[in-house]
Design a protein around this nucleic acid. Structure first.
Lengths: 248, 248
DNA sequence: CGTGGAATTGACACCCGTCAATGACTGTGG
DNA sequence: CCACAGTCATTGACGGGTGTCAATTCCACG
């Protein structure tokens, strides 16, 4: 049951002659991605193997266990990557935004599934061809290694969260992480606009939607945050939120 | 309070002339590590910047937040990497054995602390010089990227465990992981010899020692495993253990 | 064979999950 | 512009799994 994905809508804008630039050189997410700092010549080569896609929300475009034929770069929107247990329990292992790379493979198969949260645009690279480019351009491989290291560090932070933090602390940590992340990609950091649902937050934090809701209400009642609608969260006391997140 | 570590005992066996080989070429863990498949010339260069260390158990040799001056490769024994919260809560993010690489940095600082579990020997590389070697030998960087990818996949498996599995399932998963890991480095896979204490298992699985103990007793009473002393665990029904680990 | 730390076991409390009901948004159609 | 429906979020009552605290028992080591 791979790719039960009706709304995948490839806008195959492969580079064509007559363009003033190429899709990589003009990429809005370039400075955020592994393409940052790559010389023009390499960008041209990269563009030649790139396909850009636009997906609607809630589209599964990658299934855990499927042969890892492609790698991706998110250029806009939010993607969730997750793992499922046979009985349906779900753990979201990452929310990916502009500049983030995905397509991690283990023995040639994807290690997780991926689904869009919002409308998303991404670049798709054939895995084999991208690996060949790595051989040619070590700076690209360097970028990817650095990226992998950062993700590993983030994963370990999440392990601490999942293994040792209370529901309240998890939510506080999450809000701060998201705030910083949004800032990095140039979106407002303080009235945070949550791209994802409570259920998705819960699956990321190892909780239930009810517990997320209760924890959020509690933060609101403590005056640490305020809510405006379901998706806007204003952090009223960043310092208190930080203390909460770190558990002291 | 960096390196409050009395038992660090560097046996500085830097390479010296007259040796039949170099410390990397003769390394017992070479085939398991990032050094696997590297040509002789690169191993010589690597050996030139390598210091080997022998540490006794429970030695902290790396502190979260300290400047990341070195990177390490475990050649024998078991190391734990962990993160601490201000109030003392601990999450072990990995047990590292022969062939494993550590020294992950975030903004030039270590992302976790590391402590020996058993007697350990490791190779230490100055970070700066190792990075220079990466520039020269892309195959080395490739190895490291692959390693980082694998660790990321392992980290995500652990996230699923920490976020969604019951105590019983966590322990089952742990025993299977450890069994496979021991096999890979050439140690017996079925009567598993646990290098770590119950408390360390607990800090890895996001539980308490009491819960680990209870879960283990339960597995024993179900006839799925049997215990011989505190450190030997025999898996009687690998299939049942596997089902348990996956939650069905 | 004795000693001390580690592991196990027990009693109990509490946080969070479960199940269920209510309430609040969003978008659609009258 | 409003009414309505459907989905999502919140709130409540309750139970269970795991943490906490304490007392044994076991085991490795001298």
């Amino acid at each position: 049951m791979s790719s039960q994905n009706a709304s995948l809508a490839p806008h195959s804008r492969s580079p064509h002659p007559g363009d003033s630039g190429n899709i990589c050189r003009d990429c809005a997410a370039r400075l955020l991605s592994i393409c940052d700092g790559q010389p023009e010549a390499q960008l041209d080569r990269l563009a030649a193997i790139t396909t850009t896609l636009s997906l609607s929300p809630h589209a599964t475009f990658l299934n855990e266990g499927d042969p890892a034929a492609h790698m991706f770069n998110v250029t806009s929107g939010t993607v969730k990557t997750y793992k499922l247990m046979p009985d349906g329990r779900r753990q979201i292992v990452g929310f990916l935004m502009a500049g983030d790379f995905l397509g991690l493979a283990l023995n040639g198969a994807y290690a997780y599934s991926a689904e869009t949260v919002t409308p998303v645009s991404l670049c798709r690279f054939p895995r084999k061809q991208l690996e060949l480019l790595f051989d040619e351009f070590p700076t690209l491989e360097r970028k990817l290694r650095e990226r992998a290291s950062n993700e590993l560090a983030a994963a370990q932070d999440l392990m601490l969260l999942l293994g040792r933090k209370t529901a309240r602390e998890r939510l506080a940590t999450f809000l701060l992480l998201l705030s910083r992340r949004l800032a990095r990609i140039g979106l407002p950091a303080n009235p945070i606009t949550l791209p994802m649902s409570r259920a998705e937050i819960a699956d990321y934090l190892g909780l239930t939607t009810e517990t997320v809701s209760r924890a959020l209400t509690q933060l609101k009642q403590d005056g640490i945050v305020s809510l405006h609608g379901n998706t806007a969260v204003q952090i009223e006391h960043p310092d208190q939120l930080l203390h909460l997140a770190e558990g002291d």
